[in-house]
Design a protein around this nucleic acid. Sequence first.
DNA 1: CTGTTAGCGCGTTCAT
DNA 2: ATGAACGCGCTAACAG
Lengths: 348, 348
Amino acid sequence: MVDVETSPVGRATLEDVARAAGVSVATVDRVVNRREGVREKTIARVEAAVARLGYRADPAAARLARNQSFRFVFILPSGANSFMTLLSEQVARTAEWLAGQRAFIDIRHVDVFDPDALAQALETVSPAYHGVATIALDHPRIRAAIDDLADRGIPVVTLVSDVPSSRRLHYVGIDNPAAGRTAATLMGRFLRGRKGAVGVIAGSLALRDHAERQFGFHQVLSSEFPDLIALPAVEGRDDSERTQAATEALLARRPDLVGIYNVGAGNRGIAAALKESGRSDIVWIAHELTVHSRRLLLHGVIEAIISQDPGHEARSAARVLLARCWGDPILPDQERIRIDIFLRDNLP
Amino acid sequence: MVDVETSPVGRATLEDVARAAGVSVATVDRVVNRREGVREKTIARVEAAVARLGYRADPAAARLARNQSFRFVFILPSGANSFMTLLSEQVARTAEWLAGQRAFIDIRHVDVFDPDALAQALETVSPAYHGVATIALDHPRIRAAIDDLADRGIPVVTLVSDVPSSRRLHYVGIDNPAAGRTAATLMGRFLRGRKGAVGVIAGSLALRDHAERQFGFHQVLSSEFPDLIALPAVEGRDDSERTQAATEALLARRPDLVGIYNVGAGNRGIAAALKESGRSDIVWIAHELTVHSRRLLLHGVIEAIISQDPGHEARSAARVLLARCWGDPILPDQERIRIDIFLRDNLP
DNA sequence: CTGTTAGCGCGTTCAT
DNA sequence: ATGAACGCGCTAACAG
């Protein structure tokens, strides 16, 4: 019981510092918050007192005194697959939480496959908002709309899928090429000793996250697992029926199919096609933990799920926006969204 | 751009409610905080006003007015392997964060392999503390010490390794049997088509987390992968040298060894033994992402790492303790510690 | 340049 | 059973 790190209890207040430095609270406030109009000498005196007393501002009191509130708008896809529904729910929860921090979230839904609709939504964001979070398409008009908001002083956070060339404040989501590589490594390892083709299904390669995953997957599979051939991606529009049709075509075309990597949604369609075909030895890796993918994983139909935590993402987007409004720094560690791998054994 | 969920901006205050209900703020406060001494009729009137205005207390103002601060003590192992060092760092960071919430953390270090030292540390916790977090041993004297603290009104949170039969407030850590099962599934899948023995190395089976992981691993490996034989666990005391010796003995004893599952620390010892033996085809799965295990994973020596996020654990323990002090509910979703799987592709 | 002071929304006496 | 008033630590407007 040596080595006891003890923290001073009972913190110093602005007034304590003022007294110690022989100045008024207003001056201390100016120094602490780096405002204009204080002599160098006074600054030094105050800073010495701050250091000596170990003063740290009480954020609760500051927030109360500042008495501002903020409004953010989250623009989410309306074509609600299970993952997007989860995300919307988590945004709603986050909104409740935020209300306690004097910040408020409005939610708007737009068609994610329609760049014009999204662009228009972004272009018409009311100046009453202090921040925007959205699942963006990487498209020139969207990029312009984001840059425009930035010019108007409204920070934009991209969620789930990034627009790297834009002036968005921050991207909240996983590293999608890495997610694709992760899927490829799992696929290759799970298929050890087998030869054949691996099908890749995406919602749309116009979606940056899907394209990036696909890219990472092909990269690793072709370089590390020469016995496996990753097929060019087919598109299922994140929709069960179309995905089922695409899978059926794939199964018919490739009798040598040993694996399927689904980059997007529509897992129920794949399950149906697979069941119907009777091919039970196909290793299937999917994205996003939802009620459906979870069930398929538990039944051994899906072998692994690569996922991202929608709750973490919603909270992170809100924290980043809020930090920006308060001028606080963000903690990159806490905001980093992990690439989760779920097997049936480590399901939450 | 239909479907716009708009939240009311500009929240109602206690005073607004008081005015609306025709009473004073003190009375509203009594009703809202469920204090004694208000007539049924008045309560009803106030609650109606609360509902009508959608009043929600401002936690910042409440904390400020209450003007209390709390002290917690974290009792951590002194035998610092890399993971424990990471955890200590994260606890220190959390302490900084907490200071902003008017709560303070002291850190104590004790020998984790000595139940008496830990028990004594717990038994002598000063009544000045409002909560304790510790990596506990599951041992009668420890259990008694925890229950004792609970009797004294000091809540205890167990970290990383649980003491389920005690009256601890909460366990912050992963589901260890599930972690073991996860390791087994990965091991079995990665070894598809191969036959042989799989070695299991633990720090000590007296540590509940290690024993549970070992249990889960054996359970799944024996039931799902009949070609693989999980050997009884050998102990390495979470120490590199002893772990190296144990691994060398294992390698010598079992020429049919195809896999190693290390439940605890000491990975550098295993790496040394493996290198020296020249057996490069052994699938090795380890626990906890540290600088060492990370390097081994990147070099392809370790195939997968099962991990838990020490930053999340430290913050979670603090949040749970704080929530208890404030009488706030905890959000199980946010406090659940995930079983992370890292391959070289999804490293943070 | 620096000091004084009135709130911010809620908790908590102390009166009534 | 209810109300008035002060204080928590900080910000901001104004005074000097």
